[in-house]
C-alpha cells in the first residue's frame, strides 16, 4: 500500500512553479507515495506577512496546521504534511515550534483560530519537505531500483538554498551549511554531481523586488559557481530559488555583461526523466532559460514550444517609455 501524506502545495506550486507540482505528482506513484492535498489551504504568508503584523501571521499559518491535524489519513504517516516549497516548509514548521515554545503565543493563536471554529495543538503535525520524504522515507536504494534511464553525462549543480536546511525548526534532516542529500539523490539518478560550494547560499529571496542590485549579485555568484564547474543545469527544490535563478538570469547577464545560460530545473523533473516518464508530463518548457541543450545531452526530446517566440523580447503591448536612459529598439 502506498504511503499517504498530507500535501500543502502552497501558492507558488499552483501557478509559477507548476512544473514542480506536475513533476512531483508524476513521480509520486513511481515512489509508491500518495499526496492528499490539504482541504482549502491558504497562503503561508511567505516572508511578508510577519513583517507587518505578527499575531495574524501566526494565525494565518496555524489555520493550515489546524486543517492538517484534522484531516485524517488512512494508513501510516498520519499528520505528516509535505511542503515542496521551502518557504512554506519553514513557515509551517516554525509556527508549530514557536507555539510549542511559547504558551502565551499558542493561547492567542488558538483564540484567533476559535473565531473560525478551529484549533491547533502544537506538536501534532510534522511538517516535512518533499526532498526529506524522497531521500529518507523512500530512500536511495528504492529510488535506484526505479531508475530506467540513468542520466549519464549530465552535469548537475545541486542547489539547496536556505530554508530547507536552516534552521530546522522541527529538527534538520541535513547539514545546515553543506547538505548532501540532493547530491546523493542526483548521483542515484546517474548524473555527474559537480562540486557546488555555494549550494546552501541565498538566492536573494524577495530582494529582487525590494533592491534588485542586491539580489542580482547573489544570483550572479550562484550562476558563476555553477558555470565554473561546467554544470549543464542547476537543480533546485524551491520555487523562489527557481524563479530568481531562471527568471532573473537574463537580467544578471544584462547587468554584468555575462553570458550565463544555465537551465534551472526541479529535482522532481530529473527524477521523472530517470524513471522513464515522458518529458511532457514533467513540466518542461516552463523555464525561461531553455533546457533543450541539457535535455538533448541525455537523449530527451524537449516538448515542442507552445508558440512561436515573439519577435523582440522587449516588445510589449504597451507604449515605450521615452524617459532618458532607456534604450529604444526599433
Amino acid at each position: 500500500m502506498s504511503a499517504k501524506y498530507g500535501y500543502y502545495p502552497g501558492c507558488s506550486l499552483e501557478r509559477n512553479a507548476i512544473a514542480y507540482h506536475q513533476s512531483a505528482v508524476a513521480v509520486a506513484p513511481v515512489l509508491d507515495i500518495e499526496f492528499v492535498e490539504l482541504d482549502d489551504w491558504n497562503c503561508c504568508g511567505a516572508t511578508e506577512y510577519i513583517a507587518i503584523d505578527v499575531l495574524p501571521a501566526y494565525a494565518l499559518v496555524a489555520r493550515n496546521l489546524a486543517i492538517a491535524s484534522r484531516q485524517k489519513l488512512s494508513g501510516g504517516n498520519q499528520n505528516q504534511v509535505v511542503a515542496p516549497c521551502s518557504a512554506c516548509f519553514l513557515n509551517l514548521s516554525k509556527v508549530d515550534k514557536y507555539m510549542s515554545d511559547a504558551p502565551r503565543l499558542a493561547a492567542n493563536v488558538n483564540t484567533a483560530l476559535a473565531a473560525g471554529g478551529l484549533s491547533y495543538k502544537p506538536g501534532s503535525v510534522r511538517v516535512r519537505h518533499l526532498l526529506d520524504i524522497v531521500v529518507n522515507d523512500v530512500g536511495y536504494d528504492a529510488i535506484a531500483a526505479k531508475v530506467q534511464k540513468p542520466l549519464y553525462g549530465l552535469r548537475i549543480a545541486p542547489y539547496y538554498g536556505c530554508l530547507i536546511v536552516r534552521p530546522g525548526f522541527q529538527g534538520a534532516f541535513d547539514d545546515p551549511e553543506y547538505p548532501m542529500s540532493l547530491d546523493r539523490l542526483m548521483g542515484t539518478l546517474g548524473t555527474t554531481v559537480v562540486d557546488f560550494p555555494v549550494k546552501a547560499h541565498c538566492c536573494g529571496g524577495h530582494m529582487t523586488q525590494i533592491s534588485e542590485q542586491v539580489a542580482l549579485e547573489l544570483i550572479r555568484q550562484l550562476l558563476q559557481n555553477a558555470a565554473e564547474y561546467e554544470a549543464d543545469a542547476i537543480v533546485t527544490l524551491c520555487p523562489m530559488c527557481q524563479l530568481n535563478l531562471d527568471g532573473y538570469q537574463e537580467a544578471v547577464n544584462r547587468h554584468y555583461g555575462t553570458k550565463y545560460h544555465i537551465p534551472i530545473l526541479y529535482f522532481t523533473q530529473l527524477m521523472g526523466l530517470a524513471f522513464g516518464l515522458p518529458a511532457a508530463t514533467l513540466g518542461f518548457g516552463k523555464e525561461f532559460v531553455d533546457a533543450a541543450a541539457a535535455l538533448n545531452k541525455i537523449g530527451v526530446q524537449p516538448p515542442p514550444k507552445p508558440k512561436k517566440e515573439r519577435a523582440g523580447k522587449e516588445a510589449l503591448p504597451m507604449p515605450e517609455m521615452a524617459a532618458g536612459g532607456l534604450s529604444h529598439e526599433s
Binding site: 495574524p56 492567542n108 493563536v109 484567533a112 476559535a114 478551529l118
Partner: peptide, 9 residues
C-alpha cells in the same frame, strides 16, 4: 481568524 488575531495583538 485574522480579525480576531489583530484584535488580540
Amino acid at each position: 481568524i485574522l480579525a480576531k488575531a489583530r484584535e488580540l495583538g
